[in-house]
Amino acid sequence: MLTLEAFDVVVEDRQILRNIHLSIKPGETHVLFGPNGHGKSTLLNALMGFPRYQVAGHCWFKGLDITSLPVHERARAGIGLMFQRPPTIRGLTMREILKLCAADGVPVEDLAAELRLETFLDRDVNDGFSGGELKRAELLQLLVQRPNLALIDEPESGVDLENIGLIGRAINELLGRREPRPADAECRLKQAQRNAGLIITHTGHILNYVEADVGHVLYEGRLACTGNPREILSFIQKNGYGECVRCLNHQPEERSRVDA
């Protein structure tokens, strides 16, 4: 689904990501760990194609070289991003933006109800939303957009214990990791089963709700480690990032590459 080769990202003349090799296959969910400011959001934003991220190397999506594709064409090709810090858009209501990004036949109202956002439909996009509400509103937009690759930036930060379950369910639905509701079950299952995800998490709480296949650590702009997500998480929790990376620094660079 997604393949990065020797992917570098420069922002404002500063190199943030170096030599990233990554492959996400259809149906896979990957998680990304890493200290603050080490480039996790940068990776997601660069994958979405925002112009202030200058990239080198290659980026393939569904077999297509998208390295120089503009943002909206990536979105239309099936990449969706849950923003860490979404902007407020005044004068545009949630209902309107959902209509703008909805794939055909998506039951917008039902999905809004599932995320307990029914009463938000007539509010301006993100205007005055609380931290947790922003997360749900982002996920609602993605659910409506139905991307094949969902880039999810810190879905659980600032979310209370009850809502985290809600968010977990929404992500599962997005990634096709839950029995879809009977209505259009078959088509959604088929379409969703091949969906892939890349989720940034600090706490790993989301792993209690969403089953991930592969974990990575992004450290100082490099993919420093790849492996079982739960094992990586518990290693980081015990020993910290520094230790985690030191152990891996002994290993050849190629270890960070998972071939598809």
Binding site: R52, H72, L100
Partner: peptide
């Protein structure tokens, strides 16, 4: 704000459509 345009583009709107949408919202 370029972030607003990019946000709508990430939802699949072209740059023109994103600007028009934001402007209509502004004038709303």
């Amino acid at each position: 704000a370029p972030e607003e345009i990019e946000y709508l583009m990430a939802r699949g709107l072209s740059a023109e459509a994103a600007v028009s949408t934001i402007v209509r919202g502004f004038l709303n």
